[in-house]
């Protein structure tokens, strides 16, 4: 059974890491979570990024955040990737499986998954 004591243990374990981690993330993954995004399936996409980034050991490098409607509702779920010194990449019609692939190939491997980007669709 999960207890608050267990949470305290996680705190002890994390305290050092968090201090090191602060301000080091250079990549930001932004998932559109307005009505349009949620209706199109953004919730499992967000969960897939959060879990994928942790599993891939990228917590120091990547933060996953949420935003409102980006204005291209017909392409939701939309995910934007901002990397320091690079042009923004916009992925469209993302699902959990594509999210896992983006974590692996783009965030970890460094190469954009072009077939899922907005440029490939338009």
């Amino acid at each position: 059974m999960k207890t608050l004591a267990e949470l305290a243990a996680i705190r002890e374990r994390m305290q050092n890491n968090v201090i090191v981690r602060e301000g080091t993330a250079s990549t930001r993954v932004v998932v559109g979570m307005a009505t349009c995004g949620i209706a199109a399936g953004a919730r499992p996409v967000l969960s897939a990024f959060v879990e994928g980034v942790e599993k891939a050991g990228l917590l120091d490098k990547v933060t996953v955040t949420q935003t409102g409607c980006i204005g291209i509702c017909q392409y939701e779920p939309v995910v934007e990737v901002y990397e320091e010194g690079k042009e923004k990449v916009t992925y469209v019609k993302v699902d959990a499986a594509k999210a896992a692939e983006i974590v692996e190939k783009h965030l970890k491997g460094g190469s954009v998954v072009t077939e899922y980007t907005i440029g490939a669709i338009k």
């Binding site: 999960k2 267990e6 949470l7 996680i10 994390m14 968090v18 959060v50 879990e51 980034v53 942790e54 917590l59």
Partner: peptide, 8 residues
């Protein structure tokens, strides 16, 4: 919001 905490 830390992923470890959300997982918990």
């Amino acid at each position: 919001g830390e992923p470890e905490i959300i997982a918990w």
